[in-house]
Amino acid sequence: MSTAVTSGDDALFEFLCRMGDSTLVLGHRVSEWCGHAPVLEEDIALANTALDLIGQTQLWLGLAGEVEGKGRDADKLAFLRDGWDFRSALLTEVPNGDFGRTLMRQFLFDAWHSIYLGRLLKSSDKRVADIAEKASKEVSYHLERSADTVVALGDGTEESHARMADALAYLWPYVGELFAGDAVDAAMVEAGVAPDPASLREEYDALVGRILEEATLALPEGRFAHKGGRDGRMHTEHLGHILTQMQWLQRAYPGCTW
């Protein structure tokens, strides 16, 4: 096997971890609402969204383990890696805050997710395209709901509008990372596996701008971006806390099942 092929598989593994870790961490965050949402219907909706995201994680990390070829399955990757090996986007790691911030984060992620998965449908790697086909159906539904809720709360009461404006201001600096490409992205573009993240920005801003306008909120102008999640260079201080909660059972009782 040539070195080029090996490094191609390494980049593919990284790419798959980025997909799977973002859905895993966001799925965990959203599941934190289970039993705490403002009304029962929202509680159910959040739990179902989390379930979809965890399901997608199983597919992405399952394939990552297969590509890596070292006998690690989705569970091992999710529960037995340390923080520095995670490739989750920082946006998925930030605390839930209030219900409005959770739904604003969901909307900002869903908008990116739906556009990105749309491109992955044409991936040169059929395994990637198959997962994208499955996930994109779920994600278009997530986007419909999170966008509706952002509009309802943004264009709601004075209180809900102010909270959504705060949420947007807090979350916006975490959006840019989703569009910052690096060597892994370049390798994926080269192989026809995934699109260049930067090429999606215009479509994203148009989609998000349209919904925010409906929500009587302004698309922030700033382009400052916190980075370091997708490449694992510097995660938020929140990731470690998420992992202690998510992984403690497998750490304390290795291999435990029920």
Partner: peptide, 9 residues
């Protein structure tokens, strides 16, 4: 419609 989600996904 009450909610876009129900007892199962």
């Amino acid at each position: 419609k009450i909610s876009q989600f129900g007892s199962t996904p």
